[in-house]
Amino acid sequence: MSDQNRHVTFICSKGDLDMAYPALIMGWAALGNGIDVTIFFTFWGLDLIRKDRVDHLEIAPVGNTSMKMSMMGVPGNLGIPNLMGIIPGMTAFATAFMKKKMEELEVPPVREYIEMLADAGANLYACKMTVDMMDLKEEDFVDGLKGIVTAGDFMDMTEGSQIIFI
């Protein structure tokens, strides 16, 4: 174990804007600490590496009990009513709000983050079954993807790795 480098693997299964960032931030931190990183994108997580989707990830207020009215300037812990969350434009509003907050913290957009991770040596893979299910092709994904692999391949390449499912 001592002569083998630490290896952390993230499984990204969600395509919401707020669920995209954990693996990107922790993966980047891991690379910054000299740790090997693998990220496996499956199901909605494929949105993070789809050319046509990566710039359009969103966060919806509906069913999100952590999203409070305070983000709209109303003090306190009053939640955004689900009925209000379905009003057209609410998802776009929440998304724009989150993007602005991230930008203020100098957190790069998802597309740039994926590029940074690939350039820093992270192994990025897409899940074959969901790629097939969604009728996607290798050319539908951003540069830096190392391949489209099966669940079995994934098990082989993550032997001994710590695995985090998101």
Partner: peptide, 11 residues
């Protein structure tokens, strides 16, 4: 990023 990781590998 690529160059920086080459110059100073592993963090």
């Amino acid at each position: 990023t690529k160059e920086l990781f080459k110059l100073f590998p592993k963090g």
